[in-house]
Computed example of a mutant assay.
Amino acid sequence: MLGLLINGKEAQEMEYILKRELEELLLDLSDSRIDDRVKKAMEEKYKLIFGLYRRFAHPNDCVRYIKPLKKRVHK
């Protein structure tokens, strides 16, 4: 376990950066042109970034960046 001591302004900047990265990842994950192998790597990155974001943001703000569930096709 590592610790990090930052001031309020730095926390706001970190939250902003993480939000922008999450928005970009969610947009790219919904793009059907991207290969499934690439999306798998992006999903791992999403989990890591979202975990960091949850440490900085209010829980109500985190809801916006929760990845939607995949729709299953019934055969």
Rank of each mutant, 00 (worst) to 15 (best):
M1A: 13
M1P: 12
L2F: 15
L2W: 12
G3A: 12
G3T: 15
L5K: 12
L5C: 06
L5P: 03
I6F: 09
I6H: 04
N7Y: 10
G8P: 05
E10G: 07
E10H: 02
A11R: 15
Q12C: 09
Q12V: 09
Q12P: 06
M14L: 14
E15H: 06
E15W: 01
E15L: 14
Y16S: 14
I17H: 07
L18Y: 08
L18R: 10
K19H: 09
K19L: 04
R20H: 13
R20M: 12
E21F: 06
L22R: 02
L22I: 08
L22Y: 03
E23R: 10
E23C: 09
E23A: 11
L25D: 00
L26Q: 13
D28H: 01
S30G: 12
S30V: 00
D31T: 05
D31P: 07
S32R: 07
S32G: 08
R33F: 05
I34E: 05
V38C: 01
V38T: 14
K39L: 07
A41G: 13
M42D: 05
E43M: 11
E44S: 14
E44K: 13
K45P: 00
K45A: 03
Y46W: 11
L48Y: 11
G51R: 00
G51K: 00
G51D: 11
L52N: 07
Y53A: 06
R54M: 11
R54I: 08
R55M: 12
R55D: 06
H58D: 08
N60M: 08
N60V: 00
N60E: 09
D61N: 09
R64E: 01
Y65I: 01
Y65N: 00
Y65P: 02
P68R: 03
L69C: 04
L69D: 05
L69W: 06
K70Q: 04
V73P: 02
H74Y: 15
K75E: 11
K75A: 10
